[in-house]
Design a protein around this nucleic acid. Structure first.
Length: 482
RNA sequence: CGGGGCGUGGCUCAGCCUGGUAGAGCACUCGGUUCGGGACCGAGGGGUCGAAGGUUCAAAUCCUUUCGCCCCGACCA
């Protein structure tokens, strides 16, 4: 290993030593988030929040492009409303926070802090929807939600988290299903093209379905330790919530009928996914499309650098900014270049631009890629197109690398023996035949820790279940998960 | 919620067993020399030892309670 390839962040636990500790080190050292005085709740620091804002912008555009509009619904949900959908309450009951007092008065009706907003939104939809002409309703909300979690981890699972939840109502079952799959597709495209995180899209098994949904679909991403992360879900709620909240409309045939609703969401968990999908022992590696700084300029401070190097660095910064590149010029005098290299590498900046007296003599700068650590002297005349194409290359390379990793960590098992062997260590996905029964799935989980992440869309029956030997109804993708 | 570990300047930790003036490295402030992969010298500032109660002449140290965090298992974006 050459010197330039050695990890420099000795303050970060190596991934192979303890992946979970590595993750926490990166979150803290890169200043993405910090623990707060509130149990299970983290503070998203400016650098982490900037990533979230970039995720929001790019997702929001996709929602608007598919015909959705944003709105905002209340944080509190009256107890009576959340009780309406039986499966829904049962699913969320252990996780809700209650408000029982306002000021010094006991509330007549308790309020839950929303763990998700189907109940309150469904109630409003019932008022707004009268006729088939009112459909579809395509609303998204960016919000915080609260779920009383027993075990929390920054970004991956916190008591309060930020997300978006789309809630739509449709005239027909087919339309609702189309919407559910369309938004899953948006998530997949976004995860792969923006987060450079390849995902498997498919259907959740009935035991992992959203509380109250008819069908749940998910995208699943593979993390660097071989465990899978549910990165987004899209639910076809059938008429379950429409019946519970009386979302009814008069159809084209004049008959009164229940609407077909969907909901879909992704959260700040995506940031955790990006960290664990791309990061290495030196820290974070951010895909350019969500990097708060895509390029960091490190001037070499030698001699009268303020008169020579700094103006050039500022000119380069302006040139790149004019292309829409997010650039930070790190002209702090209290740190040496070497320190800054390590620091910005740890914080995942895709491209570093070094500029010193020697470069100015030669009319060039030195570019360094975060993903490959390759250093490239680049003539100033070629800088603009070079930076643009490099950012694009890095974006592509991260996706390609992650796809390769997933391929190397995907296997299939025909027998239970193969399955248990395959599940040892850090296996990634194991594809196997499955009988479709909850009990069998539960047994597999208790014996191997592996769960069904999702089922491929094409469910082809035949053969026998890898675990119980009964007739199989489909392939299933198993993995240990977060 | 069970099992384990840890709470001492901002961070990582030593000190605790065997009670007796709170320490180190890094970070921070100031001055100077440096600067192409985490520079160096000098001088400084900063901690009611997670919290509460108890034992004691005396508690970071012993006892009790409590809170938080981390790891491993049962539930979840």
């Amino acid at each position: 290993m050459s010197k330039s390839q050695q990890p420099l962040m000795s303050e970060i636990t190596p991934q192979t030593e303890d992946f979970s500790r590595w993750y926490l080190d990166v979150v803290r050292k890169a200043e993405l988030a910090d623990y707060s005085p509130v149990k299970g709740c983290m503070v998203i620091r400016p650098y982490g929040y900037a990533i979230w804002e970039l995720i929001q912008q790019q997702l929001d555009k996709r929602f608007k492009d598919t015909g959705h509009v944003n709105a905002y619904f209340p944080l509190f949900i009256p107890e009576s409303l959340i009780m309406r959908e039986a499966a829904h309450v049962e699913g969320f009951a252990p996780q809700v926070a209650w408000v029982t007092r306002g000021g010094d008065e006991e509330l007549e009706e308790r309020l839950v802090v929303r763990p998700t907003s189907e109940a309150i939104i469904g109630t409003m939809y019932a008022k707004w929807i009268q006729s088939w002409r009112d459909l579809p309703v395509l609303i998204n909300q960016w919000a915080n939600v609260v779920r009383w979690e027993k075990v929390t981890r920054p970004f991956l699972r916190t008591t309060e988290f930020l997300w978006q939840e789309g809630h739509t109502a449709h005239e027909t079952e087919a339309e609702a299903e189309e919407e559910t799959l369309k938004m899953l597709g948006v998530y997949k495209e976004f995860a792969e093209n923006v987060l450079a995180m390849p995902v498997l899209d498919g259907q959740k098994s009935s035991s992992e379905k959203f509380a109250g949904a008819s069908r749940t679909y998910s995208i699943e991403a593979l993390m660097g330790d071989g465990r899978a992360l549910q990165a987004g879900t899209s639910h076809n709620l059938g008429q379950n919530f429409a019946r519970a909240f009386e979302i009814r409309f008069q159809g084209r045939d004049k008959a009164l009928q229940y609407a077909w609703t969907t909901s879909w969401g992704v959260s700040t968990r995506l940031i955790g996914g990006v960290i664990m999908a791309h990061g290495d022992d030196s820290g974070l590696i951010l895909p350019p499309k969500i990097a708060p700084y895509q390029v960091v300029i490190v001037p070499i401070q030698r001699g009268n650098w303020q008169e020579t190097v700094l103006p050039k660095a500022k000119a380069v910064q302006a040139d790149l900014q004019s292309l829409g590149v997010r650039v930070f010029l790190d002209a702090r005098e209290e740190f040496t270049p070497g320190w800054k290299f390590a620091e910005w590498e740890m914080r995942g900046v895709p491209l570093r631009l070094e500029i010193g007296p020697k470069d100015i003599e030669k009319g060039q700068v030195v570019l360094a890629r975060r993903d490959t650590r390759e250093k490239m002297p680049t003539p100033l005349a070629e800088l603009q197109p070079r930076v643009t194409s490099l950012l694009d290359e890095i974006q592509q390379a991260l996706l390609a690398r992650a796809i390769k990793f997933r391929e190397e960590h995907t296997s299939s098992s025909a027998t239970w023996d193969e399955f248990t062997t395959a599940m040892e260590g850090r296996p990634g996905y194991v594809v196997a035949r499955w009988c479709g029964r909850d009990v069998c799935e539960a047994e597999i989980k208790s014996e191997t820790q592996a769960t069904i992440r999702n089922l491929p869309f094409q469910q082809v029956p035949g053969g026998v279940c890898v675990h119980c030997g009964q007739p199989a109804v489909t392939d299933a993708r198993f993995a240990k998960s977060y």
